[in-house]
Design a protein around this nucleic acid. Structure first.
Lengths: 231, 231
DNA sequence: GCCATTGTTTGCGCTGCCGCAAACACGCGA
DNA sequence: TCGCGTGTTTGCGGCAGCGCAAACAATGGC
């Protein structure tokens, strides 16, 4: 395998502080791979042998209940760590990770985790920082689900996606990976039908433009008013 | 201040592996204090100067939305760390922590965190283990809120409370701290009224016995059937 | 022992959202 | 270019759970 280039991770928060020697060391234990759209990177319940860093693309993390309901735990953006089961003290992955578009992923075997944490001070920190941020995200989501109506939750979710993964287009900001109404429903605890109805209403009101697996926000401020329930 | 005894924390998971010298070192940086029922240990938004270990009692962690809705994030049991804002890289507490009963709490200033992590290998691990466990809990809660009906969510919540903080009594298992219908509502994303109605129905069916700020589960198995929606 | 406070129960009407069903549109592969 | 699969829209009816309101019960302070 050819050596991986430092530029792959040199600018990623959490790795940015490392020396060149440390970067090389981190990379020497990893290997890079491609996953095409809809490929499964790891599956819920599978033995957690590795952890990952998303170099490019977008990954959907999905949990399935015993009854077969799917819930999207989050989308992973470029530069984020994921599949951190080992750092949670788990031996299996608690969710599926599926490539939302073609992806490039850096993979470390769990055995590298112990070593990297020991020899490179900032490394474990990066992982735990990620987990901490996710705990806070997840807690916000509990609060939304507990106190807000469906329309507000969808507004918050769309705004968050646009903020984290938005791409400027002619008449607004587009979520830069394909996302279905069903996906949005699984992020907000509602149904495909309700999402569709609400997006249609927003389109009517000139807040967004829809499309097949596509959402373009044309009036972010208007959406914020809905998110805060001040329409 | 008198030296704290090793027996305070010697048997707590996360500290159990430490040597006597390490235990003494951990304790030398801490101080113990009492909080009486309903006292605030720290408040949402307040600067996070310390982190905590609950030695005895029960603590309610409550988040308040900008609109004033309260959501109970969790109850802390004896032996658990809490107020770990520093480990999440936060400078303020994201929630209120309120003594649900009279409590004894061990407190470390944040400055101790950096030092303890450096000098005592297992210490940081205990904190991150706690955060990881909470991330998983919180994610389960998102799934419950997203896919289950109110009655199932209440059943799961009551069963969890009984499992984590249950005390055997004559005719069942009682949650061993005072908890109101309102509290249960704030844990399950519903209203006081709906909780009351459902508990009344369960009492009618012989599954639980209620009381002021009290819940006794008399038929855990029956409750499990409801939690799984197989009544 | 009385009263004020805090918590609980219950009835009633309403509505936000779901569930089902059917038609429709886009885009890919052959 | 056509056809099929996958995603989207929309109508309609139903109901779980909320909001409001009012009465009731337990507890603790004085």
């Amino acid at each position: 395998m050819p050596a991986l280039d430092r530029s792959l991770i040199g600018e990623i928060p959490g790795f940015a502080g490392l020396s060149e020697a440390d970067l090389d060391r981190v990379l020497s234990l990893a290997h890079a791979s491609r996953f095409e759209k809809d490929a499964t990177i790891f599956a819920q319940g599978e033995e957690a042998h590795s952890f990952f860093l998303l170099l490019s693309g977008h990954v959907r993390v999905v949990k399935t209940t015993p009854e077969g309901h799917q819930v999207i735990a989050r989308y992973i953006n470029e530069g984020e760590l994921f599949g951190l089961a080992i750092f949670l003290g788990r031996s299996d992955y608690p969710a599926d990770a599926v490539a939302a578009v073609d992806c490039v992923v850096l993979t470390w075997p769990n055995s590298a985790a112990a070593e990297l944490q020991k020899t490179i001070p900032g490394f474990g920190g990066a992982a735990y920082q990620t987990i901490g941020a996710r705990l806070q995200d997840t807690q916000s989501r509990v609060m939304e689900l507990s106190t807000q109506q469906v329309e507000q939750r969808i507004a918050h979710t769309v705004l968050r996606l646009v903020r984290q993964s938005g791409r400027k287009v002619a008449d607004g900001i587009e979520i830069d990976f394909p996302i279905t109404r069903q996906d949005i429903a699984e992020m907000t605890g509602t149904t495909l039908h309700t999402v569709s109805r609400i997006l249609s209403a927003w389109e009517e009101a000139g807040l967004v433009r829809g499309g097949r697996q596509k959402v373009i926000v044309t009036d972010p401020h208007g959406l914020m008013l809905i998110a805060e329930h001040r329409r």
